[in-house]
Deep mutational scan, measured.
Amino acid sequence: QEELVKAFKALLKEEKFSSQGEIVAALQEQGFDNINQSKVSRMLTKFGAVRTRNAKMEMVYCLPAELGV
């Protein structure tokens, strides 16, 4: 569980995922086979993730800066 949270936060820091499906796929690539869209959705809510525009003006998920991840 701890490893999943770390990987999840690291992915969001990249600010390149525009959908929950993309986050699920990226986590599965890292070996988290039991991850699915509903789990990702709950984690996004739990950590207060928001959708914002990145440098390329794409809408992407990211974590609020005050979490200091």
Rank of each mutant, 00 (worst) to 15 (best):
Q1H: 10
Q1L: 10
Q1F: 12
Q1Y: 14
E2R: 10
E2Q: 12
E2L: 12
E3K: 13
E3R: 11
E3P: 10
E3N: 12
E3G: 10
E3A: 13
L4G: 01
L4D: 01
L4V: 07
L4Y: 04
V5Q: 10
V5G: 07
V5Y: 15
K6S: 11
K6H: 10
A7H: 06
A7Y: 06
F8R: 00
F8N: 00
K9E: 08
K9T: 09
K9A: 08
K9R: 09
A10I: 08
A10K: 08
A10F: 08
L11M: 09
L11R: 01
L11N: 00
L12F: 05
K13E: 09
K13P: 01
K13R: 14
K13V: 09
E14G: 06
E15H: 06
E15S: 07
K16I: 09
K16R: 13
K16W: 04
K16L: 07
F17H: 06
S18K: 15
S19G: 06
S19F: 10
S19Y: 12
Q20S: 10
G21P: 10
G21K: 13
G21M: 14
G21W: 14
G21N: 13
E22Y: 03
E22A: 10
I23P: 00
I23M: 07
V24I: 08
V24M: 07
V24P: 00
A25F: 09
A25I: 12
A25M: 11
A26N: 06
A26Y: 11
A26K: 08
L27N: 00
L27Q: 00
L27A: 00
L27G: 00
Q28P: 00
Q28A: 10
Q28D: 03
E29P: 01
E29M: 10
E29W: 08
E29A: 12
Q30Y: 08
Q30T: 05
Q30N: 06
Q30A: 11
F32G: 00
F32T: 00
D33H: 13
D33N: 14
N34Q: 11
N34V: 05
N34W: 15
I35V: 13
I35E: 01
N36W: 04
N36R: 07
N36I: 05
N36E: 07
Q37K: 15
Q37W: 07
Q37S: 11
Q37N: 12
S38C: 05
S38M: 11
S38A: 14
K39M: 15
K39P: 01
K39Q: 13
K39F: 12
V40R: 00
V40I: 08
V40N: 00
S41M: 09
S41V: 11
S41A: 14
R42C: 09
R42E: 15
M43I: 04
M43D: 01
T45E: 14
T45N: 11
T45P: 03
T45V: 13
T45C: 05
K46T: 11
K46D: 14
G48Y: 03
G48M: 05
A49Y: 04
A49D: 02
A49R: 02
A49P: 02
R51M: 15
R51V: 13
R51C: 15
R51S: 05
R51T: 07
R51G: 03
T52A: 14
R53D: 04
R53M: 15
R53N: 08
R53W: 11
R53T: 14
N54M: 02
N54V: 02
A55K: 13
K56E: 11
K56C: 02
K56W: 06
E58W: 03
M59C: 03
M59W: 15
M59F: 12
V60M: 03
V60R: 03
V60A: 04
Y61I: 04
Y61S: 01
C62A: 15
C62D: 02
C62V: 10
C62P: 01
C62S: 14
L63F: 07
L63D: 03
P64M: 04
P64A: 05
P64N: 05
E66W: 08
E66G: 08
E66I: 06
E66T: 05
L67H: 13
G68M: 06
G68S: 09
G68T: 06
G68Q: 11
G68W: 05
V69P: 15
V69K: 05
V69E: 15
V69A: 13
V69S: 15
V69H: 12
